[in-house]
Design a protein around this nucleic acid. Structure first.
Lengths: 355, 355
DNA sequence: CTGAAAGCGCTTACAG
DNA sequence: CTGAAAGCGCTTACAG
């Protein structure tokens, strides 16, 4: 059923049918009513999107592009909160949301009027395709593209605060637990680490080391473990490896709350008390962090706000406004119950956040 | 830049360009290479989706339709896990995911090849629009539409198990905390309750009462509270009202884990011990439930599986396969630490789940 | 207040 | 292995 059918049925032109939907002021109310009734009777659900998009050249759709399979992107609490923020702004602007995996850059580049590229590796082909097509876009978190619209957090500074907190508590034997990016990046190797195509991981690593070094802990003696994949199982494997390691760490700097949960769980299983025998910090301040036992000391980011900001930047680009300058959100330490002085006794104690 | 431009540049027909993308076997490798190179040089990112969709009459897109603003849909952990399952199957089948709010039924009905209608009120206009358009669809959770493809949980039975558990522990003064559906549904009023347009709420209510009645507790004496809205603030307001209520309940049956969290938090604030002075059950078994202090006794559903199943049913419809029979997933009680005998002493104790 | 005509970008059955 | 032509469903500047 198309506009033509409705028009034929009523003995009017297709244009009148189109106007009934798009410019109600261009025809009499009575005629409009008749059009709408006929449409309902014939089972016509309004203008076809494909036809309309083709004609109008826009789709009122914001694409959000991920590096990972969509399933991970949606399940991760931080990513979900981000998407919630995007959805709020997109909804208000009457735009749909199209979720895309990076795997097919052409598809990604075609189904939406503009793209929010969410935390993707340096050199990801979507970005090249987006640039080629001159499609409006906003990069979130990574990669860093000179002069591109960008929303991210101050990862380095947040990481620094977390590590400084541990050092102040008196920790000397510290391990780092980094994201699993799917590929087995041998982060233990300093050379490969420098070539890591994920800016967020690089910056958090740098922040941790800044503070460790400042506190008199040689970063060379701080092992960097990595989850072998993006899921919970992979995190558990890495957490267990840390607990078994020769270093015998008294504290773990985990690059996400999910990784921190894995460390806490592995510790519980191994009979290691957190924070009595092992301190753990996370990153993100996902809602579950404040409910977990013990509550996780972590670095808070406002994911919802990040999402809103990203959507607003993109919408502004879509309206043809000039690119805004990169937005850098705060990331700050929230001290809770998963950190304490090391077993031997530490330095000074800090007050806990009162919720 | 269109196929025509590429064709003109190369002195071939548009068809050859199209074939280069869609039927590589229809032209020589050398020619195909030249086409692709020219496309890259001219900044052409492959066939336009609008043109392609219009011509082909399909969009390789699954729409997921929500009752609530998209932002809530994405932030809710149960809904997010569901969407994760949908995304996994859609991704494997190379379909995009379009997130839609019910507000604009026509848009909802147009941007996708088929719709997953997620937990929507009886009589929601999207469903009528979908039916009118003969668009393939699957209903999840609610509403119940005779003969429609359906995926849901056995809500009534799950609710029954939760209430039976409380009764067995010895609780007599029980309150129910129901979803906030946005509209102020005065659930306290039995007449209005019967007219509630949400089947899931109706069934869980019925399940609670089945078990309460069987255990000798008159459902007429069990107040039904309702969150005034879908967000965390609304849940808190309702939880506080329960704690202040004349009944002085020793147990609360909350219809979701998020609602249960609100009760636990409100209790903590009021200095009421959970489970010592107040037992609380949730529904869903969201990941945070097992991490919360105390861990929440709840009714587990497999949201991921629900999502996968819904997507598979829809994809099958899209392939023209005959409608499958409705799928009803199990919902079963998981006893954790938020329930115990009432203060006065209860009946027999149950073993806790060992994780 | 209403209509005839052109064209958005693409693909496919058909012919060579 | 390649091409000419038709048409998918829609909307808009223009004319009446």
């Amino acid at each position: 059923v198309t506009v033509k059918d409705i028009a034929a049925e009523l003995g009017v032109s297709p244009m009148t049918v189109s106007n009934a939907y798009n410019r109600p002021d261009q025809l009499s109310d009575a005629l409009r009513q008749r059009v709408l009734e006929t449409a309902a009777r014939l089972g016509y659900a309004g203008p076809s999107r494909a036809g309309r998009d083709l004609r109008l050249g826009g789709q009122r759709t914001i694409g959000v592009v991920y590096d990972t399979p969509l399933a991970y992107a949606v399940r991760d609490a931080a990513a979900a909160a981000f998407l919630g923020g995007v959805a709020a702004v997109a909804g208000k602007a009457e735009h749909h949301l199209l979720l895309l995996a990076t795997a097919d850059p052409v598809a990604a580049t075609r189904g939406a009027d503009g793209l929010i590229v969410y935390s993707v590796a340096d050199g990801d082909p979507v970005l090249a395709a987006t640039l080629d097509r001159r499609l409006p876009f906003v990069v979130v978190d990574q990669p860093r593209v000179p002069d591109a619209p960008f929303v991210g957090a101050n990862d380095r500074r947040g990481a620094r605060e977390a590590a400084a907190h541990l050092v102040e508590l008196g920790h000397r034997r510290v391990a780092i637990l980094a994201f699993g990016h799917g590929d087995p990046w041998p982060l233990a190797d300093a050379e490969r680490r420098a070539a890591l195509p994920y800016a967020v991981t690089r910056e958090r690593l740098a922040g941790y080391k800044d503070a460790l070094r400042a506190g008199g802990v040689d970063p060379a003696n701080v092992p960097v473990h990595e989850a072998p994949g993006p899921d919970a199982d992979a995190a558990r494997v890495a957490a267990e490896a840390i607990l078994r390691s020769d270093l015998g760490p008294t504290a773990v700097l985990a690059m996400s709350d999910d990784l921190a949960f894995a460390v806490v769980d592995a510790a519980a299983l191994a009979g290691v008390d957190v924070p009595g025998e092992l301190s753990v910090t996370g990153f993100d301040d996902v809602p579950a962090s404040a409910r977990t036992r013990p509550e996780i000391t972590t670095v808070r980011q406002d994911h919802d706000r990040k999402g809103r900001l990203a959507a607003e930047l993109l919408l502004a680009r879509l309206r043809g406004e000039p690119p805004m300058s990169p937005q850098r959100l705060r990331a700050r330490l929230v001290v809770r119950a998963s950190t304490a002085p090391p077993p031997g006794g530490g330095a000074r104690t800090l007050e806990r956040e009162d919720r």
